[in-house]
Structure formats: C-alpha cells, structure tokens
Nucleic acid binder design. Structure first.
Lengths: 219, 219
DNA sequence: AATTAATTTTAGATTAACTTAAAAAATATT
DNA sequence: AATATTTTTTAAGTTAATCTAAAATTAATT
C-alpha cells in the first residue's frame, strides 16, 4: 500500500514525462509538487527501492511498468470522480479538481468499477481528457487546437488544454464548454486573435493563447 | 486542519462516551482504535492542546463543544457516503463501512451539502442510524429491540445495533433489512430464542442476541 | 578548457505518529 | 489499611516525510 505522497509522485512523474516527452527532472518534480528538490531526491530513492521508477542519480526518472500502472489507475480514478462531481453533484468544472485530487486516493477496485458503471462508462472527463479504462487504455480522438482552423471553418469543442480556474471561468463567461461549436469568422493580423461565433449565436473575440488551449474537431 | 488520525480519535471519543454514557478511558480508546494506551496518551495531549477535548491525567476524556462539532460532522459525512454507496452504487450494506471510513475524511462543506441534496436529504443511513443534519442535530425515533415485543406482536425493522459483517450477512440470509416487518410467533423458554415470521412470508428462528440487535417500531 | 551557473544530492534536523518497557497512579481485593 | 491488580503515563526510541544549508555534479558560457 502506497502513501498519498508516493502516489502523488507517481502521478507527477507520469504527467511531466507525458508533457515533455522525456524523463522527469528533480527540479520539475519539486515545482510540480510544490516541495524542495531535496525532498524529491529523498522520495525518488524510496520509489526506486520499491521498483516503481527507474532512477539514476543526476539523470531524472521514468516510471517502471508497475509505476505506470499505478499512475494510470490514479488518473482513471481522478477523472471518474470529476465526472461524478460535475454530472451528478452539479459542481462547476472549475471546482472539481481539488476534490478529485483527494477522492482518487481511495483505493478499491470495486468502488471504481461501480462508480464507472453508475456514470455509464464515460470515456472523457468534464475537461475533455480521456479516462483510461480498467486495463489502463486511453481513448484517442482526432483533435486540434482551435487556433489551427482556417477562417470560415467550424469546430466542435472536445476539451481544454489549460485547467486553471481563471481560464475555466472565462470559458463559462463566453459560454464555451465541451460540445460547443465555434466558427472562425476573422483573424486579426496584429496579435493573431480570433473573432468567433459561439453555437451559431453569440459573437466574440478571443486571444491566440485561448484558441491554442481549446481543442476541437473540425465539422 | 486535522489529520486523519486526530479525526479518528474524536470520532472514537464521541462513540465511546455515547455508548457508555461517561468519559472515554485511555484503554477503551486504545482498544477501539487498535493501538496502544501509550499512543493514546500521546494523542490526547495533542488534542487537549488544540482544545478539542477536556483531558485530565488518569481521568479519561470528553469532547469540547468544538470537538463535538467535528465528531458530529464526521458521522454525518460517514453516513451520507454509506447511503450513496448502497443506494447509488448498489453496494451490499456489509461492504460500505470501510469505504465510508475513508470518504468521511474529505472535508468540504460544499461537497457534503451537494451529496446530501443528491441523495434527497436522507435522515437515516443503511443500518438505520440517524444522519445528523448540517447543524449537527440527529433525528430521534421511537424504537425498541425486537426482543422486547410480546408474542403475537409485529414490528417493522428500523435498524441494527450491531454492525459486524457476520451479523449483516446473516440478516441478508434471513431476508431481514430496514423496512422488513417481523411478527413474533413463539418464544422458546430454554434460551429465549424467538420463532418469527418475516414480511408475512418466511418463518424462522432467531437467537435472543439477534433479537436484541434488531431495532423495530411496533405496528 | 576554464569558469560560472544551474541542478541535484547529501548531511543533519524536525515533526507527527507510533512503539516497547518501565514507572506512577488509581482501583480492587484480601 | 495494606497489598495486588489494572490502568495510565512517562521515557526513550523508530519511521516516513519533510525541511535548510552545504557539497557535489552537470550544463552553459565565456
């Protein structure tokens, strides 16, 4: 049985290696986990001892098969709980992360498989991130940043690549969420911002970084 | 913010004082929490420091107003999660205690009030124990052990006073749960066991301790 | 290549929660 | 009341997870 802390390290290693497509460094882990590099080194030794990570001094870490299995299971639990909180308890999507962060540590195959069934085996969480199935497999979808659509094209929002409260609240404001359709009406040369139409109704202008964080499929 | 351990101590003190109607002793706490008396003394000092308990060396402990508030909130959370697990996730009642024991430690007013609403403000958990409301008030019901009914009388099961897996599984077997009606058909003088009829259908014989653990209302 | 800067690790301490063993206090028994 | 028993506390030490500060290693820059 792993401690909360150990589980959080595995998840952090998974996320960092996924994002940067290479082994996670001590410093990046320290930043991600809001702790000191010394503490990270300490913990890496322990996780290495337990054969959950491949660790060589000064060389960064990657997950072993077992470490990867555990990290994936944590992500599965996290995202299922997020679906529960949004779909069943009617939380706003910007408020579910911290709660799911706690709920995910409750380990019980039975609990998670029943929750999964109760939620009707969702494949994606409220932010559009894929929920690994019980075997750890993620559903892949064809998606691209809204910023890559051409003027005149329409996309349907599948998810977001940025999870900060500020960003999610902004999307609530302009009434954009997974499922929403967005048509690119005009591109402003000066700063690459976009004039868009939301769900065939409202019009508004969004900055380029916003368009980069919105993942869509062309329709 | 209290640790899991501290919260478990408060709950244990609450339960022991409730049951034995006096201050909880170091030994009873050690037994209840499956630890040593020395560890208990250690923790009592810390909780006393935080003004959550009234503690005098060699004299046992009681909860302060604040300690009582926290313990009651934990019981509320525990019992609401049990309702969720049984009513929504379709767990058997003998399997929910340990999971609720973990879920209860997730602190969020918002989470609990939404869960409460989602479950339709239940007043009792799957074992028939009252769920304190947000203000900490328990609903009181008129109830008595089945063993106190006279021969010929009928009662409706409201809950159980014994929560062991073995007992709950036995009740499943004889198809008794909250809501079930039981008619006393005969009392066996030799060992005070009872011949009963369940839900106007099956007949069976139960021992006196079983009849003591079944709480009913006369109908 | 040598120096500087950044990153990572070690060393040494701290804290919460726990343990065992021995001492102290309270309670029960003769 | 004195003694024995039980209960509780203290003392001393352990372990996981953290920290700060200093040392070691690697990477970057001149």
């Amino acid at each position: 049985m792993l401690s909360f802390t150990e589980e959080n390290y595995l998840k952090a290693i998974f996320k960092i290696s996924e994002k940067e497509k290479k082994s996670a460094s001590t410093n990046s882990l320290a930043k991600h986990l809001e702790t000191t590099p010394a503490s990270v080194t300490d913990m890496l030794k322990r996780l290495s001892e337990k054969e959950l990570i491949h660790y060589e001094r000064y060389r960064g870490v990657t997950l072993t098969t077992e470490g990867n299995r555990i990290a994936t299971s944590l992500i599965r639990r996290h995202r299922l709980w997020e679906v529960f909180l949004v779909d069943k308890l009617r939380f706003d999507w910007e408020h579910v992360h911290d709660l799911a962060e706690e709920l995910e540590h409750i380990y019980s195959e039975e609990l998670i498989s029943r929750l999964d069934a109760f939620l009707n085996y969702p494949k994606f969480d409220p932010h559009g991130d894929p929920i690994p199935n019980a075997e750890g497999r993620f559903t892949i979808r064809n998606q691209m940043p809204l910023s890559e659509l051409s003027t005149g094209q329409t996309g349907q929002v599948l998810g977001v690549k940025e999870h900060s409260n500020a960003f999610l609240r902004y999307l609530n404001q302009i009434r954009v969420k997974p499922g929403t359709t967005i048509k690119i009406e005009e591109r402003i040369d000066f700063d690459a911002s976009l004039r868009i139409q939301v769900d065939n109704r409202e019009h508004c202008t969004i900055s380029y970084p916003v368009a980069q964080a919105l993942m869509v499929k062309k329709i």
